[in-house]
Nucleic acid binder design. Structure first.
Lengths: 197, 197
DNA sequence: TTGCGATGTATCGGTGCGATACATCGACGC
DNA sequence: GCGTCGATGTATCGCACCGATACATCGCAA
């Protein structure tokens, strides 16, 4: 999941770790707190070893290819490679079960602007299915097992059920929009990393 | 968190691992999927080593103290100890930052029937504070940074903001109830493990 | 000038997940 | 009587990610 998120952000522009974390926090603020450094840096190394990102400055043509705003030693700016972009598309399109849990869905959704419509539809429907299952489970408990649970636990289930129902409705809307061709906004495709300005 | 959840369930009645997992799935169905065996069994061993739970049948007085419904070899029934009950209360009352994240709050809330009112109030208010912070973060992004994000990302933030607002309202109600003395139901205190029937 | 908060990179231990293995049991069809 | 299939049941392994921590630099204000 982190791979996808990081590649996605670096797809928009080169960045160093700290900045990546901040951007991720705003982009995925609705989904998860903030990525931990204990995940971030090892992941960056892994991505680099795999050849999906490189440290900017090593690219070519020597010197200060991307003049950092505050050119301080110690900052490591990463840049996505062509292989990285391929990998990103691969990750975007592939759908395991983890694609539909809270985090997985959120990350995929956050990059929907780079996803083709068929994939968007598939992911939205997969997510809906999953939330519906959760919803049915909660309804069962509230119906059948209600007497065996205390009032607080039941209240928790009720709140969870409400959240599920709302999310399903939200997903229905999004799916309808996708089907009708008009996305939330086909406008504003995010800027791509210019290969050679 | 697992410690708390497992001790809490075993507080209600002795159980073996598989059953524990199922009960946990229904009790915390609104919060999290289901605990993985890869967490469950190591945790059970840890709790046992710490002396908070023991295998039923080892207790005392030899033989078949709790005659299992289907007395099959291989099932390991666990039972909470007196130390375990102390530990449970300790975990219930203590409030680190992780007490207020989604999972932590959910687990605490699920055992509110065993929590004293002051602690309940403290936890509800802590959670509210946390959700409010999240909400403010999302409002900021939707207000200030809106133009820099694509439509899908914005839609995600909007949905997240809505969920935050709803949860805050829900928490407000619960807090008001606690303050006014009438909990959702002071009734139905769950059964305790009988020490000696 | 000193000291503090933001920026920045990095590691470590622990928690929990998903996949997997394996064994028993009751129910069902044949 | 026989196979086999799904539910029950215990257990481990590797991986992903988190939270705490360490440490160093910068800009700014007291």
């Amino acid at each position: 999941m982190l791979d996808l998120a990081i590649l996605g952000l670096l797809h928009e522009s080169p960045m160093h770790g700290y900045e990546l974390r901040k951007q991720l926090a705003t982009k995925l603020g609705a989904i998860r707190a903030a990525i931990s450094y204990g995940s971030l840096y090892p992941t960056l190394r892994r991505l680099q070893v795999a050849g999906w990102i490189i440290e900017a400055g090593e690219t070519a043509a020597g010197a200060e290819e991307i003049p950092p705003l505050t050119s301080r030693r110690g900052r490591v700016v990463y840049k996505i490679t062509a292989e990285g972009k391929e990998r990103f598309q691969e990750l975007l399109a592939q759908a395991g079960p983890e694609t539909y849990d809270d985090t997985g869905f959120g990350v995929h959704f956050a990059f929907f602007a780079r996803t083709d419509q068929a994939t968007r539809l598939r992911i939205l429907e997969g997510r809906r299915r999953k939330v519906e299952e959760r919803r049915e489970g909660l309804r069962d408990v509230l119906g059948r097992a209600a007497e065996r649970l205390d009032a607080y636990t039941l209240e928790l289930q009720r709140h969870g059920l409400d959240a599920c129902e709302r999310e399903v409705r939200w997903l229905e809307e999004l799916i309808a929009n996708e089907r009708s061709g008009r996305a939330p906004q086909a406008a504003t495709p995010p800027p791509d990393t210019p290969e050679r300005p």
